[in-house]
Structure formats: structure tokens, C-alpha cells
């Protein structure tokens, strides 16, 4: 950080201004610039408070800026695809291709191969999908794209369930969460423990050049990670935490707050990895107990009423504590 500049803590800005126009020019987001690309234009059909629409806009505009607008996006089936392209309308101002639910990574590999063979090395490829299209049905294609180290940045917008089809469980749904297929009934209401998969770490196991997690709670960090990923070649993966107010049972104006609590509680750690090794993580500035996060969403309501489910809340806290340890999230920051 340059001498004389003030370190700005995001949560202290206390403003809803898009792109933090009140910030120093250097620290503003791509969205705050007048020449931003606007990859997803307004008028799409996303729900109020949609974390995925927000995350995709920031991610793609950052990628567009990094590639000077020379970019092709591939999209898996899902909310993002459905709400952005109701024929004959489209929200996309960049070349955009949707094929199927489970093949976005492979289609993107094909686009990259076609560009390579045509000598169009200037055009970059970004693939995107929700958690269902990434961690479940698209997982084989994703892993194939990773192991071949195809020149694709894959961005997963994780809202922890199949929201497009009506909030069913995915392998990204957290334990205890209520979904349409893990109802809050019976002896172990909601999604059970011991299931699900940690795709960022699986991505790391492929030893691809870059893996990162990001969150709509820190859009600047998301942009920085996308920009960094776009400066590299080969297979890259960014897993973005995007709350779904509808599916999670949270107020539509709480998207950012819910996302921030997910990171501050360490249930969704933010980190970066290169070639299979963690190289950085975002430390928690003000740790909160997991229940502060859980209480913001009706999908966890059964953990608190009719009576507190101490045992299962404790296990969720243990998961957060393990993340703190694994990514060293409570370390003392070096003061500027």
C-alpha cells in the first residue's frame, strides 16, 4: 500500500453506493468507473436481492476490463442463464453461449480450442455456472477441463442449492439447511452432516494455476481475484459465495450482510491458491459466532425453535473453527 493512503475497511464505508464512488479512485471498483463494460445490462429477470446477478456482474465486468473486452462467456443452465436470456431478449453485451446444464466447462474448453486453432490468442474464455451446474451435474466436465489445464476461467456462483428448480439440495448445500428435498422435519431436520463437497479444494488437487474463493460481501476482493485470474493462462477457478434471499429465507436487502456474516463466521473462508497451494487468505476482522449467520436465514430456523439445537449448532461452529485453523483466518494483521 502506498504511503499516505489510508487503509479503508469495507464495512466502515457504510454506504450502499454502487462501486464505492466515495472511495479514493484507486480503490474504487470496476463498477464505479464510467467506462465499465456493463456485461449484464439491466432489465434481466433476477429476483430482488439476487446475489448471483450481483456477483456475475462484478466478475464479468472485471474480466471484460482485464481482457479489453475480448471475451466469450459460456454459461451453464441455471438461474443466471434463465433470467438473462428470455428470447428474444438478452442481457448480455458480450458473446455468450449456453449449451446445457452439465457441460459448461467442456463447452468452454471447445471455445478455447477453437480460438487457439484460429490464432485468436487475444480472446479469453470465461465459463460460469451455479453450484448445481458446477459441483454436481457439471463436475465431470469441470474436472476434465481442470486436468487438461484448458485456458478457461470457470466461475461458480454458489448459492448452495438448486434455486432455479425451486430450492432443492445440492452437494454445496450446508449441513442442517432446509431445502425442498431436505425438509426441516424428523430427527435430523434439514440437510445432514457428513455430506457435500468442497470444490475449491478439489480444484486445488488438480494443481491448476489459480483457485480462489470470493464473496459478494467483498466485491472489491472479487474483482481483484478475477483480474488476477485473467492475468494468468490455463485452468482457473473462482468460487463465489452468492446468497439467494428467496431460497435461503432472508430479506432481499440482506444479501451483502448475510454474505459478510458467512465469511466473518468462517463458514465461507476467502482464500487464494496457486498450483495447489494456498497462498493467501482474507483474515476475519471481527469474528462472529456461526449462529449470528445462521439466524439471518429461515433455512436454519429449526436450529433455534422450538428450542435451540445446541448440539448441531456446535458442530457447525466446529466446521467454522476448522476453517479458521486451515486458512489461518484469525492471524494478527501486519499494521500498515
Amino acid at each position: 500500500m502506498q504511503e499516505g493512503t489510508q487503509r479503508v475497511k469495507f464495512y466502515q464505508t457504510g454506504t450502499l453506493t454502487v462501486g464505492n464512488r466515495l472511495l479514493d479512485v484507486e480503490l474504487r471498483t470496476v463498477q464505479a468507473t464510467t467506462d465499465r463494460s456493463n456485461a449484464i445490462t439491466s432489465g434481466h429477470r433476477a429476483c430482488q436481492g439476487c446475489g448471483e446477478a450481483l456477483g456475475a456482474r462484478y466478475a464479468l465486468d472485471a474480466a471484460m476490463r482485464a481482457s479489453n473486452g475480448n471475451m466469450i462467456a459460456v454459461n451453464a443452465t441455471g438461474c443466471l442463464e434463465v433470467f438473462s436470456t428470455p428470447y428474444p431478449e438478452t442481457s448480455w453485451t458480450l458473446p455468450w453461449l449456453h449449451s446445457l446444464f452439465g457441460n459448461a466447462a467442456a463447452v468452454a474448453s471447445g471455445v478455447a480450442a477453437a480460438l487457439r486453432t484460429q490464432g485468436r490468442h487475444d480472446i479469453r474464455v470465461v465459463a460460469q455456472g451455479g453450484d448445481g451446474g458446477t459441483t454436481d451435474i457439471g463436475f465431470a466436465c469441470l474436472s476434465g477441463m481442470f486436468e487438461r489445464n484448458d485456458d478457461v476461467l470457470y466461475i461458480c456462483y454458489d448459492n448452495q442449492g438448486y434455486m432455479n428448480t425451486g430450492v432443492q439440495r445440492s452437494s454445496a448445500t450446508p449441513p442442517t439447511a432446509r431445502t425442498a428435498t431436505t425438509p426441516a422435519i424428523g430427527g435430523e431436520p434439514g440437510n445432514i452432516f457428513g455430506t457435500g463437497k468442497d470444490v475449491p479444494r478439489i480444484a486445488m488437487a488438480h494443481e491448476i494455476p489459480y483457485v480462489a474463493t470470493a464473496s459478494v460481501a467483498d466485491l472489491h476482493d472479487l474483482e481483484a481475484k478475477v483480474t488476477k485470474a485473467m492475468s494468468m493462462h490455463g485452468a482457473r477457478y473462482i468460487h463465489v459465495f452468492v446468497p439467494c434471499p428467496l431460497g435461503w429465507g432472508a430479506p432481499t436487502n440482506s444479501t451483502i450482510r448475510v454474505a459478510r456474516l458467512a465469511s466473518e463466521s468462517a463458514l465461507f473462508p476467502l482464500f487464494e491458491a496457486e498450483h495447489g497451494e494456498v497462498i493467501a487468505s482474507s483474515p476475519i476482522r471481527k469474528q462472529v459466532p456461526v449462529e449470528d449467520y445462521l439466524k439471518t436465514q429461515n433455512r436454519f430456523a429449526h436450529l433455534f425453535k422450538p428450542e435451540r439445537d445446541e448440539e448441531r449448532i456446535a458442530v457447525l461452529q466446529q466446521m467454522a473453527d476448522r476453517n479458521i485453523k486451515r486458512y489461518d483466518l484469525l492471524r494478527e494483521e501486519v499494521k500498515a
Partner: peptide, 23 residues
């Protein structure tokens, strides 16, 4: 470009992407 993929589903999907991108 000769691409060894992980399944037939991926094989045709890669071809779809490649064809859409002009190859």
C-alpha cells in the same frame, strides 16, 4: 486441436463450443 476428454458427453460438448466459436 486434438482433445482427449473425460466422456462422450464432454466430447460432443467440446465440439459444440468449438463449432460455436467458428472451428
Amino acid at each position: 486441436e486434438f482433445i482427449n476428454v473425460e466422456s462422450e458427453f464432454a466430447a460432443l460438448s467440446v465440439a459444440i463450443g468449438a463449432s460455436a466459436a467458428g472451428a
